[in-house]
């Protein structure tokens, strides 16, 4: 069973290395969205410092969603998804493997590049660790919730826009708690509660999302 998990993660990472452009698109999108905000609201440093956590988090949300439209689409088009549905391993496990691979090539890169963007917003250095940790705990939840939406909208017209309508409202708690953690740290308050909540969300999502996405895939592939 874990052979299948490893095999799917390995395969998706291999595919990602051979389709570098796709991976970079999401990352560049993230950087551009973040960079647009100073142009929109003006370069006033205090304002930028205040909005930085929110802006980076919202951009991470959008980048995660943008790349999610493709998580099952290629496998659906070439028939691999059918083989996955007929696998002897539980489908939830295969979905979990795909989500892990998706996070490794988008979420993780966003986490790594976020501190750099935060510096552009003049976010104090002691907050960078908090921001990175909040993204590290939060972005996997985004990938998992998003997988449910991607599975539900598989093969539908207007898939991308529909996906955002389904998924973005469900992202709200992660956004609130994740960006909230950085705000708390900026105000000099403790962030343990936020991180515990993020970890709790991660556990709940990990327990629930792969199976919901698996059920959705069976429905969509009919």
């Amino acid at each position: 069973m874990f052979t299948v998990l490893r095999c799917v993660i390995y395969r998706d990472l291999l595919l990602a290395t051979r389709r570098w452009a796709d991976v970079l698109t999401a990352l560049v999108f993230f950087v551009i969205v973040v960079s647009l905000f100073p142009l929109g609201v003006g370069p006033e440093p205090n304002l930028l410092r205040t909005i930085a956590p929110g802006v980076i988090w919202v951009a991470a949300l959008l980048a995660s969603m943008l790349s999610l439209t493709r998580i099952f689409a290629a496998d659906y088009a070439d028939g691999t998804l059918e083989q996955m549905l007929l696998s002897t391993a539980p489908l939830g496990m295969i979905v979990a493997a795909k989500v892990i691979a998706h996070w490794l090539v988008t979420g993780l890169l966003v986490v790594l590049i976020a501190p750099l963007l935060a510096l552009q917003f003049d976010l104090p250095q002691q907050l960078l660790a908090t921001l990175t940790l909040s993204l590290l705990l939060g972005t996997p939840v985004l990938s998992m919730i998003g997988a449910i939406g991607a599975a539900l909208t598989l093969g539908l017209r207007g898939g991308g826009a529909l996906l955002s309508l389904l998924v973005l409202p469900l992202y709200v708690p992660v956004l609130i708690i994740g960006a909230g953690a950085v705000d708390m740290a900026a105000a000099g308050l403790g962030t343990e509660a936020h991180f515990l909540l993020l970890a709790a969300l991660l556990v709940v999502a990990a327990a629930f999302a792969p199976w919901a996405a698996a059920a959705a895939l069976r429905i969509s592939a009919e």
């Binding site: 395969r11 291999l14 595919l15 051979r18 389709r19 290629a74 088009a77 070439d78 028939g79 691999t80 059918e82 083989q83």
Partner: peptide
Amino acid sequence: AHAVKGEL
């Protein structure tokens, strides 16, 4: 659709 990936 025979589940063959072009990149592999």
